[in-house]
Nucleic acid binder design. Structure first.
Lengths: 156, 156
DNA sequence: GTTAATGCAAAAACTTTGCAAACCT
DNA sequence: AGGTTTGCAAAGTTTTTGCATTAAC
């Protein structure tokens, strides 16, 4: 695997999220903690799903606060977003190791792929275009193991 | 309308788009031709940009017709869409060879990459997950040649 | 006590839908 | 003629914004 330091134990980013906020002069609010926790726990979630999760915690947070907070947390590098459907963006914590999303267009399943699987691609894009891909934001649409045979069948 | 001579003759998909429509029992309408031409000419375009382009041709087409038509043309395989920004989907003609989009997050530039650059990735996803990527729908966000040095600078 | 952050409600941006009129075949 | 497609207007979604109130520091 990668030479990545201790992966997900004391959750580095989560541990000092308060400090990250303070350093930039932002305030610590319960809403911000709730939104960050929700993203952490949900794995991949749209703003709407984050709101729902927060409401489960018996907390009343406004949807506009969710949007504003996600934007802030992303700016601070605590969360990231990708586009897993043709519609809403989905947010995920940066605590989990960076990964690429594989989305099945047939059944909607979401798989996580290791960034190493994209090392050849990364080299090719660098060599051919001088382009540096942002793998954490990458979503690959396609067909999953299960749906592949079904769809190929239908094509005949 | 302007006496429109065959804009692009050596284009397979374009040549028989009328036939493709007829075969499935759809009707040939000026709106459909205008939308398809607009997509062809624009390269990458949002529904809104398509509408604008069509209006340039002095034709009054409704935005809802653009949406309906793009959906139809995609179903027929004459156009495809990808997500080049965090917001709107962009449509492009299937006449142009299948390619992957590289989008710079800093300056917004869009480059086209050859699918061959992704062959290793394709093999890896197949081997590791049984996943078959849809390269025509793939968009890779990152930093282009020009912006790379600038952004790396700023990070310090 | 200041100043940033939140809630609320209204607006904005984008897309979809119902239906009568217009148009293709 | 007959059924499809369009235009229009209205409704649906999702996201953003302004401002008074609340709360963090």
């Amino acid at each position: 695997m990668t030479s990545k330091s201790p992966a997900v134990e004391a959750s580095p980013a989560h541990a000092d999220w308060q400090q990250v906020l303070r350093e930039k002069g932002y305030r610590l609010t319960p809403q911000r903690e709730l939104v960050l926790s929700a993203v952490d726990e949900l794995g991949h979630a749209t703003p709407d799903e984050v709101l729902e999760k927060v409401h489960e915690q018996a907390a009343a947070v406004n949807i506009s606060t969710v949007y504003r907070t996600l934007e802030l947390l992303e700016e601070l590098g605590l969360v990231r977003h990708a586009h897993l459907s043709d519609r809403a963006p989905t947010y995920h914590s940066t605590r989990t190791p960076q990964h690429v999303h594989l989305v099945c267009r047939s059944c909607g399943a979401v798989l996580d792929a290791d960034v190493e699987e994209f090392s050849a691609m990364t080299r090719a894009l660098d060599a051919n275009h001088g382009f540096e891909p942002d793998l954490g934001h990458l979503t690959v649409f396609g067909l999953c193991e299960n749906c592949r045979p079904l769809v190929e069948e239908r094509a005949k």
